[in-house]
Design a protein around this nucleic acid. Structure first.
Lengths: 158, 158
DNA sequence: AACCTTGTTAAGAATAATTCTTATATTGGA
DNA sequence: TCCAATATAAGAATTATTCTTAACAAGGTT
């Protein structure tokens, strides 16, 4: 099964916004104009905008919105699984092991774990249809989630 | 074929350093103590260190090295294909399309291109062996390289 | 409909990560 | 050894992101 299933993207914007509102309510997140406008902007965009770009777009509708609100909202939307963050948010990390492998990255503590696929695994092969965009220099496959240690730590707090 | 083949990691440190020196010479990069020490540090590390962490480690050998040198060197090593950068270096970007897909990211201009795999593609499946690390929330598969536009622009300059 | 409670926001300061500037030092070829 | 070009240290500057605080507003309660 895919980790984030296609359920909303086929609907029209109005329906997606309604679904977003419902999701907010189910999570006790207040339905604010700012959240709605940020969601609308992102749902209509095809350019993987940065927080700054979302800010610029939303500002046309809500001139007083702050950049911080955009950051906060995008983070909560990611948390809620409504948007996907391309790449890593934390600081850059480096690896001198060039053996083909991938990573599990903890979204909470930032820890990076190595995973070496079986030799016959197709996971890291470069698909042919990428050549239309440019020359591939490397592959970055990461699975992001919460590591066992953070999960356990979160449980203790309650 | 894998994009970054396993050629050096099986060798011992001394051999890897020699190979690194040879690579530097072949690219007209000077072989400096700083570069060597940064390479040694990274080659021996298994923790995907950040630039700051590399800096701290290298400092023990070269107390006067600057953080900027570490950043510059890591960038040139990435460029040379000696190290791999985990995640993206640029600012965060967001995507509200949750249909399973992956990205081609231009290492030069930062542009992000969508690639939708064939419905039966195994590319974005979560392997079972990841569960040992934690709970996966999402998958980030990106191919990084130079897009055709940047390639063309670089060609014109010459 | 007015009233709370609590989450949310704007504004701008603060922080963190990375890059730039400049003068000095070093590499590697002549 | 000398020279030209590249690399470096130091610290300032920039960029991205987060925090602080006081005002505000959503949505449940009366």
């Amino acid at each position: 099964m895919y980790p984030h299933e296609q359920t909303e993207n086929g609907k029209d914007l109005k329906a997606r916004v309604e679904a977003f509102k419902a999701l907010c309510r189910s999570r006790a997140l207040r339905v604010t104009e700012q959240r709605l406008e940020i969601f609308r902007t992102l749902a209509q965009s095809k350019s993987h905008p940065s927080a700054e770009a979302v800010f610029a777009a939303v500002r046309k509708k809500l001139p007083n919105i702050s950049l911080d609100t955009v950051y906060r909202t995008l983070a909560s939307m990611e948390e809620a699984g409504v948007v996907f963050r391309v790449g890593l948010s934390t600081k850059a990390r480096f690896d001198a092991d060039l053996t083909p492998h991938y990573h599990f990255v903890c979204m909470n503590c930032g820890e990076v774990y190595d995973i070496f696929p079986a030799p016959d695994s197709p996971a890291l092969l470069v698909p042919q249809d990428i050549k239309q965009f440019g020359e591939v220099k490397n592959v970055n496959l990461q699975f992001r989630g919460i590591c066992h240690r953070c999960r356990a730590a979160a449980g203790e707090k309650k």
